[in-house]
Design a protein around this nucleic acid. Structure first.
Lengths: 217, 217
DNA sequence: TGTACATCAGTGAACGCGCGTTCACTGATGTAC
DNA sequence: TGTACATCAGTGAACGCGCGTTCACTGATGTAC
């Protein structure tokens, strides 16, 4: 832990106001998207003048970065807690889906259309790889496949991103398909591409998950 | 064909200017994203005054709608042409990928984070279903699976979206997995989520495609 | 072929807006003796 | 416990900006007789 938790009244107050700012920011993002985020609008909502927010965030970009960080942290923590209480890969999949449905714009802030020119700071990529690790653990815990796919063999030679993880090549492969397939269903669902098709996205998600867990020849 | 092709000099000129406007708009979107689109900026680039553009588009939203339409039309046409010249499902997959890589922001305009509050007009959903039909055709042309999956059975009861298509339930299922899986890989690739992982997204795409085409038990 | 009129592309000024951000300031809260 | 000082949250005015959009207009292009 960093020097976060000092507890003078002033610091508690600061933390509280910061929290309210981000809360309002999330509301704004949920209704109008990330590009519509406005410091002045948030200040007005809180009954403060615009410049007051500069006591709490150095700039608009700073606020956005904090929101991105919160989103990553929230997902990482949610998955971590679920895994710690015994959820397997299928369990994590549903946790992921629930997390995404709770706040679609939050999901899109992490996995959606990138904001051109925006680069996440290093600590965020660290949280991102924590998420990956949790999922990789769950993949590695599954019964291993009998054969090694050609792509898994390729991954074995390009596992820099999982260099410090003991997962077998097949588990790496499974992690990638888990990630991309569920994201595929989820993002199209959240973007509304299934509306009007009269099919239940939850069932498609479930079908994909089942296929993912079925052992391969 | 509608009354598009009248050919008075004035109409040709109008079409030409409209085309240049959308061309500049695409450039702007490619570098700064859709939310940064500005009529005034486009006018300045063209050496015109801002209000001049209102001769060609009723509003900014009108321009965006036209861009969305162009994107859908481009993809629909690209797939249609490929299918007409004999591409099978695997071929269409690569056509799709190439189309996406050509202009990531164009892909995201169609399949990325939705613009909150924006609703596409009816003619766009028509083009969207033309895309689906092309892909569905290719799915139906594959050798049928031996068994019917539970999800395919479910789809058979909820095929409103493909009511006028003779595809077998398994083909519907295949179409959906084709769409969501390839979108999953593509959108994460285009959003840069594989950068730093030192793996070639093309191989992941190829592996997913191969799995998609392999017959099921 | 020439003239009278209608059409229409583009201009420049203007409106109102909300944005991010800076700055000098007031007033309340906390700290040190 | 009381006083002197430092810290810091929040204000209001101001800056400059670019946005979408309207309006009355000029001037060129096309049309009708």
């Amino acid at each position: 832990m960093a020097t976060t938790g000092t507890n003078t009244p002033r610091e508690r107050y600061r933390a509280q106001v910061r929290a309210e700012i981000t809360k309002r920011a999330w509301e704004q993002i949920a209704t109008a998207g990330a590009s519509a985020l406005s410091l002045n609008a948030i200040a007005k909502q809180m009954g403060m003048s615009g410049p007051a927010l500069y006591r709490y965030f150095a700039s608009r970009d700073d606020l956005i970065t904090e929101l991105v960080r919160e989103a990553y942290r929230s997902l990482a923590e949610t998955l971590r807690v679920a895994a710690a209480s015994g959820a397997d890969l299928a369990g994590l999949a549903h946790v992921l889906r629930d997390w995404a449905l709770t706040d679609p714009q939050r999901y899109f802030l992490v996995y959606g259309t990138p904001i051109p020119g925006y680069h996440a700071p290093a600590d965020i990529t660290a949280i991102s790889s924590e998420i990956m690790t949790t999922l990789l653990d769950a993949c590695a815990a599954l019964a291993p496949d009998s054969a090694t796919s050609p792509f898994a063999a390729y991954l074995e030679d390009h596992r820099d991103w999982a260099a410090d993880h003991p997962a077998a090549p097949e588990a790496l492969h499974r992690f990638l398909t888990f990630w991309t397939r569920l994201h595929g269903v989820l993002s199209l669902e959240l973007a509304g591409h299934f509306t009007g098709m009269h099919l239940d996205p939850a069932r498609l998600f479930a079908a994909e998950l089942e296929d993912l867990l079925a052992p391969r020849a």
